[in-house]
């Protein structure tokens, strides 16, 4: 990308669209337990938004917008998943046994809270972390 073409329209549109995609991906992630969606799809959708940003701008801009260490994110996701699984051991249950219950929460009303969501957050983070690590690594290498 030596001679930078003028892609102002692309950049403006991308900024808006990727924001919408990320919101949608978060919706997909949380809805995954009842309707299509879940950690994998949510994570992939988020990464797709980030990839779009990357294509519209360049890798350096993306790094300044999102100063995350994506490898750390992968590790954190894995750790969350494993710990969620291991948590069941504390209650004398087999590894990865999930539990859920219904709670009255302010604003949301009666809500079911589920440890599987924690596990799924791990999956979500790993998927984003992995995809972005791959893309960043390839994009940065000369």
């Amino acid at each position: 990308m030596k001679n930078k073409p003028n892609d102002l329209i692309l950049q403006t549109v991308t900024t808006m669209i990727s924001f919408i995609i990320i919101l949608f991906s978060i919706h997909l992630f949380f809805a995954g337990h009842y309707t299509p969606g879940g950690g994998f799809i949510g994570g992939l959708m988020t990464s797709a938004a980030l990839v779009l940003l990357l294509l519209a701008y360049d890798i350096k801009t993306l790094n300044t917008i999102l100063p995350f260490n994506f490898r750390m994110m992968t590790a954190a996701g894995l750790l969350i998943s494993v710990l969620t699984g291991a948590g069941a051991l504390l209650f004398n249950q087999p590894f990865l046994t999930h539990a859920y219950d219904y709670f009255e929460l302010p604003l949301l009303g009666k809500t079911s809270l589920h440890t599987a969501v924690l596990f799924d957050i791990g999956v979500y983070l790993v998927v984003i972390g992995v995809t972005m690590t791959i893309i960043q690594t390839i994009g940065e290498s000369e």
Partner: peptide, 10 residues
């Protein structure tokens, strides 16, 4: 859960 595929996965 309602989405069987996701429940199987997680």
């Amino acid at each position: 859960g309602g989405n069987m595929v996701n429940v199987i996965l997680v």
